[in-house]
Design a protein around this nucleic acid. Structure first.
Length: 485
RNA sequence: GCCCCCAUCGUCUAGUGGCCCAGGACGCCGCCCUUUCAAGGCGGUAACGGGGAUUCGAACUCCCCUGGGGGCACCA
């Protein structure tokens, strides 16, 4: 029951922005399918909309795919390089009477469509130019109107195809209006370019988002009219949605792949997470290597309903990957990100220590660097921010705590063990030293949620540590016991 | 408005007529560990949208309803 034809899939983004995670998921599933079946993964750039397409995005999309580790075997093919083919195809359809010249402007079409919708009739093109005579066409041209080319959809009957994840999907042609395949400027529209290319590139499986499911009938009709041989298999993936269950978009948070990169997510973690959105292995494992996913992936286990993009679960998964990373590799990531933020104030030895200490406690590289910021920031720029007042208010005898810590640290051995200030705190009568620790964390690291204190101070050095504690002490002023006379 | 798709814990999902008074993971809550916070360990909370039908037996099959989403561009 196996398809003898070798698998050829494609990812066909429009270069109208940076790579969206939803698109990345589509690219990933195509890539997984190709790799699982030993097929070919083609990259095709659908840049037929000259207005919105930009060269920089063509580059950006490829960079993002490389970062994610989705390597393609062919391409990138640019549709803008193949305009002749589409024009020729449109010509053939015109000659065969499967398409016709339409002189309506987009505004006119829209106005009549809205009117139809209001009247309860199906919206879309009303077929006004369907059967124009030569004389009428000449008249329109004489008025200075330029024609677009519309595909004539069947008047009756229905279209249906078998979707690999959803089963049979069909629609009555009476609900599908004629659609433009060539713009007034003779450039092709998605449906045409898409159909022509999938035929010519021998694509066997089309795996894409569910938002395109309705367009499938139109592309299939075009394809048949163009004489394309056996139709490809289609698989429509469930959409990725935000908290409001609507298609994932910018307003839901980070959606551009580069945002995830910048926030310190690891490509392998993102691949793992994305693979789990709309697919799951039979045995329920969730932490999967790329190779394991490739080995287990297939379309028959793709789920049917929209998936919520859960940033919290991604964080957990990314943390798992960070903890599993060899220390040197992690240090490299931390180094790169730290240099990006703090320039030459960053030194490799410190970064390595930060990576070692922070590995167990961070869910992203960016969060890890945040924890190390107190080391790299210039002393003049060091601030304890909003956390300070709160923590002071919550701390028992803050001034005395700082005094005791300073006294202890001034002449103890500068080793992690000897730096432990808790004994000194107990000596001045602090019973629950744990209650008082946050004060020291904030004073030294600028934040309560940071690296373990003694390691942090050790890395900072005695001078800077004491300077910060002294600065903190000054902010508090005189101790309550001493009168401020 | 018309057409299409979808429907199991808050979330991602397992589940294809009896193994399910529904399993795992994230989150959340509690406890332990602990140099604050995390991380880690242990435990807990929590779901088959509703109504019919088929069947000895339905989360799983069929129908209706409801709900959610998508599409209806000279965007892709």
């Amino acid at each position: 029951m196996t398809d003898a034809k070798p698998v050829r899939v494609r990812f066909a983004p429009a270069p109208t922005g940076s790579l969206h995670v939803g698109s990345a998921r589509t690219a990933l599933f195509n890539w997984l399918y190709a790799r699982h079946h030993g097929g070919t993964f083609v990259l095709r750039i659908e840049d037929t909309d000259a207005e919105r397409s930009r060269g920089e995005w063509i580059v950006g999309i490829q960079e993002a795919m490389r970062w994610l580790g989705l390597d393609w075997d062919e391409g990138p093919y640019l549709q803008s390089d193949r305009l002749d083919q589409y024009a020729a195809a449109a010509g053939r359809l015109l000659a065969a009477g499967r398409a016709y010249e339409c002189f309506c402007t987009p505004e006119e079409v829209k106005a009549r469509s809205d009117e139809a919708m209001k009247a309860g009739r199906p919206p879309g093109y009303d077929g006004r130019c369907r059967d124009l005579t030569d004389a009428e066409r000449a008249e329109h041209r004489a008025e200075g109107r330029l024609p677009s080319v519309r595909f004539r959809t069947p008047d009756s009957g229905s279209s249906s195809f078998v979707d690999l994840v959803r089963g049979e999907v069909s629609v009555e042609w009476s609900t599908v209006s004629d659609f433009v395949i060539l713009r007034t400027d003779a450039s092709p529209v998605f449906f045409l370019a898409n159909a022509v290319d999938d035929v010519e590139m021998g694509i066997t499986h089309i795996i894409r988002g569910e938002d395109l499911i309705d367009s499938t009938h139109r592309v299939l009709a075009l394809r048949a009219a163009l004489g394309g041989s056996d139709a490809p298999h289609y698989a429509h993936l469930p959409l990725l949605v935000g908290a409001d269950r609507a298609k994932l978009s910018k307003r839901h948070g980070a959606v551009a792949l580069e945002d995830f990169r910048d926030r310190g997510y690891l490509p392998d973690a993102l691949v793992n997470y994305l693979a789990l959105l709309g697919w799951a292995p039979a045995d329920g494992r969730e932490l999967l290597t790329r190779d394991e996913i490739v080995a287990d992936f297939d379309l028959d286990r793709v789920t049917h309903s929209a998936a919520f993009f859960d940033y919290k679960k991604l964080d957990w998964l990314n943390g798992e990957y960070i903890r599993a990373l060899p220390l040197d590799e992690l240090a490299e990531c931390v180094q790169a990100e730290s240099v990006l933020r703090f320039g030459d104030r960053v030194d490799a030895a410190t970064v390595h220590e930060v990576a070692r200490i922070g590995q167990e406690r961070s869910s992203t590289i960016a969060a890890l660097v945040d924890q190390a910021a107190f080391l790299f920031v210039a002393d003049d720029d060091f601030t304890v921010a909003e956390a300070w007042d709160k923590v002071v208010a919550k701390t028992e005898r803050p001034a005395e705590v700082l005094d005791a810590a300073i006294a202890h640290l001034r002449d103890c051995d500068w080793s992690i063990e000897a730096m432990d200030v808790r004994g000194a705190l107990e000596a001045i009568g602090i019973e629950k030293t744990r209650k008082v620790m946050p004060l020291l964390y904030v004073a030294v690291e600028g934040r309560a949620a940071g690296l373990p204190l003694f390691d942090a101070m050790h890395l900072l050095g005695r001078e800077r540590t004491l300077a910060r504690l002294a600065a903190a002490r000054r902010r508090i002023g005189s101790a309550p016991g001493e009168s401020a006379s």
